[in-house]
Amino acid sequence: MRVGVLALQGDFREHADLLTGMGAEPVLVRHADALRGIDALVIPGGESTTIGKLAERFELLEPLREVVRLGTPTLGTCAGLIFLATATTGPSQIHLGLLDVVVERNAFGTQVDSFEADLDVSGLADPVHAVFIRAPVVAKVGAEVEVLAAVGEDPVMVRQGNIVATSFHPELTGETRIHELILRGEG
């Protein structure tokens, strides 16, 4: 199974290594032609403003939108969630606009407020040990969006059709159950 991993910036190698360990074949995506023939797509953690600007300058926005709209199972983590969303509550930035949520960036504070915690995820028997780094939360959820996990009242994992997105980083803890969702095509 070929999984495109957007490799403009961020922890794309951690995603690729995790996917390799799960028996999938990661493909690093820096150009649109690398999207051809992929069965799933991952948008990694990183700086969402940087990833958005590079995707725009190197003409990846439309090709990415096309792939996701065709129904390709897609996972976005942290910056990936922000990039997939329609907007943020803060200054405007570049989004794919495919996931009908408004995201609040750095919702828990600065890096000194970053944390790890066990998190109950709907559909998973055991909690996920989740790492939140300058993490966003979902501030507004569209009608088609299902909330899969929350910290307090704030959604931190959502699903809409073929898209799953998290505020936390399964790729940093060796957690495979989130990636399994898209490998099984349940994204």
Partner: peptide, 20 residues
Amino acid sequence: MDTGTDRVKRGLAEMLKGGV
């Protein structure tokens, strides 16, 4: 909720990778 752990501290650097 644990703040200031190794994983959280090193994790931010992971997010900066490939960047300037």
